[in-house]
């Protein structure tokens, strides 16, 4: 298969795309190294870094002890010292143990040093529910990080972004956190073999409609696109916006869509209270109030710790049926 430009296109999984991004970065820049729990000999908890140890060796594919605060802080120090570390925190569920380093050190150093030091660090974390991992291994806490000035927060939902955001994140002179939804690792998509960096401060319109705007990110993108197809069968054509960047939020793309469709539903796999969906709702009300034909609606995770049984986990998370129902409601149907 070839692209319009004549390049080769391959079908790859999201996992492959992240691995290709890591390989690319490690080959291109000797300052880049990957550090985290089980990234080397084990091959990564989600097999993302499988094979990298053989190619790059244990100095650059660095297994760490279970010390999130220690090795994230060491990543910050190494970034200050001229390296370009990629730190893998196995999942967001364990990231509370390094929240101090991210919030109090990575995000503040540039500011409290009066601009003398920047922290060119990329942190990758798996996030999200759906694998029956119960209450302590199913969090979506992206919005906690998106609350913090001084860091950039990205949520790749496509193979292209899974590959491209890492490179663009490494070019950013400031700390970047990339959230990889666990339900996406096995997903396949087409990717140009010469795919490079992608823009990281814009949302993407993944489907163009006219009747309402469905706004989402990460793992929920595919559920939302599924809901949009179902709605199309009912004669409701939805815009689907993939936020891609959770901090900063691309207000322009959101408002352009909502001003045109006059209705918005936000799909967010985090708890409703204090969610990104709440922030986006507020921004729509602030910036698009007079364009709205219906109250903004939200489809979020039920406010319970995620339960283990599949039927209850499914019931707790945003699902296409709930997205369709919310869309119908704002359409008055």
């Amino acid at each position: 298969m070839t692209t319009d430009q004549g390049g080769t296109v391959a079908t790859v999984t999201y996992r492959d795309a992240v691995r290709m991004a890591l390989q690319d970065a490690l080959r291109r820049d000797p300052r880049v190294f990957l550090m985290g729990e089980d990234v080397g000999r084990y091959g990564g908890c989600y097999a993302v870094s499988k094979g990298l140890l053989d190619e790059f060796g244990p100095e650059r594919i660095r297994d760490t002890p279970l010390s999130e605060g220690g090795f994230v802080g060491a990543g910050i120090g190494a970034a200050l010292g001229g390296m370009r570390p990629i730190v893998e925190v196995m999942t967001v569920n364990f990231s509370m143990l390094c929240l101090d380093q991210i919030l109090n050190t990575a995000a503040t150093l540039r500011h409290m040093s009066g601009g003398q030091f920047s922290v060119p660090l990329v942190i990758r974390m798996a996030t999200g529910a759906g694998r029956q991992l119960a209450a302590q291994h199913s969090h979506s806490l992206e919005n906690w990080y998106a609350h913090i000035p001084g860091i950039r927060v990205l949520a790749p939902a496509t193979v292209e972004d899974a590959r491209g955001m890492l490179w663009s994140g490494l070019v950013d002179p400031d700390p970047v956190i990339i959230f990889e939804n666990v339900m996406l690792y096995n997903m396949s998509g087409e990717l140009a073999e010469d795919a490079g960096g992608v823009a990281i401060d814009r949302a993407a319109l993944r489907r163009r409609g006219r009747d309402l705007s469905l706004i989402t990110y990460g793992g929920s993108l595919w559920k939302t696109l599924g809901a949009a197809r179902q709605l199309a069968g009912e004669g409701i054509e939805a815009d689907v916006i993939d936020l891609r960047s959770l901090r900063p939020l691309d207000d322009a793309t959101i408002m352009e869509s909502v001003a045109r469709t006059r209705r918005a539903v936000i799909v967010d796999e985090s708890w409703r209270s204090g969610s990104l969906a709440a922030e986006i709702t507020a921004r729509i009300v602030e910036q698009c109030f007079w364009s709205l034909d219906a109250p903004v609606a939200r489809v979020c995770t039920a406010e319970v710790p995620i339960p283990y049984p599949k039927h209850l986990e499914d019931a707790a998370l945003p699902q296409p049926a709930a997205i369709v129902a919310a869309a119908r409601a704002v359409m008055g149907r």
């Binding site: 910050i76 200050l80 101090d100 050190t105």
Partner: peptide, 25 residues
Amino acid sequence: FYGGNAIVGGGLPLAVGLALADRMQ
């Protein structure tokens, strides 16, 4: 001079990382 770190214990991982960068380079 890297601070000036006011979270008790917070500067130690930073020192480890600075030393790691020196070693790797």
